[in-house]
Design a protein around this nucleic acid. Structure first.
Lengths: 237, 237
DNA sequence: ACCTGAACACCGTTCAAGT
DNA sequence: ACCTGAACACCGTTCAAGT
């Protein structure tokens, strides 16, 4: 990339980098290299600069990663809360949440570790979702856990979407695990297999769809039971 | 550790290392250092040897990691399948699955990426779980997805269990997200907070318990509907 | 202010030399 | 066979020197 003549040292007449360009380019590099080989040198190379140039615009590598995180999160659609019925709003949110992260699977592990602080899209999302759950009648002391448990499923599913098509390769040991091997074969026949990439997607989608509907139905039922409990003691506030 | 006198070069009279010792020690080091600083040098240091000594017993770092993975997986209890009702067997499996990985949270990201091959405890687990789901009546073309979706929730939850107690720190921006901030406060009052570590555990447990029961109830309901569908066309085989 | 070039303290891994 | 010591090709990051 950027195969113009090499730049000499010294400040260029027109600056080549800015923070936004770095972050956007980071996604291309991460997708191509995977998390293992996602290095500051690779990022700089794609941008046509030397590695140290990056440090004029970002403090360190972690800062690049959390900027990426915010960009991903800002693509999650929580617009259903306040306009659609809870179930539909939650389903829409969950789907777009998983899609947002599945598009950048290598960034998933980030979410669990980097704290959510500051006036960012992530906090805004939680505000909207919490309000939506409360409106539906979720008790205030459980609402965060309900959201977090759904997130766990979503992120786990996004993680699953990263898995290679042949993650379950019983190979030479098929005879030792015949039931599992057979189930894998039936699934493959059922979903149809063209190429590895589309099959991996189909497989992950089937698990996500099945799980999401079950989870949402289960949450609805739990809420119904909470609503009807005698002498409700959790009506906080 | 191992603060005996430094060893001179050359083969020691009695060998100091073996593969099993390396893997067991790896858990101690990983727990203490976190995944970031989990280096071959740190592992060697804990074992009282120089780094290259490890390569007489393991091929590379990845091999150490996947050995750890197998050790974790072998601790997952799938004994309920075939002996207990499906719901109880699945609950027991899910709980022990999450516990096994929550005990080694830094190893979670491994599972999603490293393929499952060979005659290992992991394949045996899938065999038992698949059989258990089939016995309950899950259609063969959906059984793997049902298991995988549950696993997604479990692994996502284990990932959540890694999160620091203050992962949601609205901090200076509490006024901008009042509903979410209030919900966090009510949860804290409800669960009680002694120290950060135990609070983080309590918080993660609440979300997991709530989610697991909802998910299992939802899966049961889905299965019931699948069982009753008219002119059942999925009785594969 | 914003780039390069050189340097620093790491990393995982290889391999000859020692016993 | 199994350890050390030295080396190699990397990493992220710092900083002086150039424009």
């Amino acid at each position: 990339m950027m195969s113009t003549a090499p730049r000499r040292a010294g400040r260029p007449k027109r600056s080549v980098l800015d923070r936004d360009l770095i972050v956007r380019t980071a996604f291309d590099v991460l997708r191509r290299t995977g998390p293992e080989d996602f290095t500051m040198a690779a990022l700089a190379g794609e941008l046509g600069v030397k590695t140290p140039a990056l440090y004029h615009h970002v403090g360190n590598k972690t800062e690049v990663l959390s900027s990426m995180r915010e960009l991903i999160t800002s693509g999650i659609d929580h617009s259903g809360f306040g306009t659609l019925p809870w179930l539909d709003a939650t389903r829409r949110w969950a789907r777009s949440y998983r899609t947002a992260f599945a598009a950048h699977p290598h960034a998933i592990a980030l979410l669990a570790t980097t704290p959510v602080t500051g006036a960012n899209p992530t906090l805004s999302m939680y505000e909207a979702v919490t309000q939506g759950f409360l409106d539906e009648g979720w008790p205030e002391e459980l609402v965060v856990s309900a959201i977090v448990s759904l997130e766990s499923f979503i992120l786990g599913s996004a993680l699953d979407a990263v898995a290679p098509a042949d993650i379950f390769d019983t190979g030479d040991f098929a005879e030792q695990v015949p039931v599992f091997t057979q189930a894998l074969a039936v699934r493959e026949r059922f979903l149809g297999r063209e190429d590895d990439a589309s099959y991996a997607t189909a497989v992950a989608d089937q698990a996500f769809d099945l799980g999401l509907e079950a989870f949402l139905a289960g949450l609805s039922a739990s809420l119904e039971r909470l609503r009807n409990r005698p002498g409700d003691a959790t009506a906080a506030r």
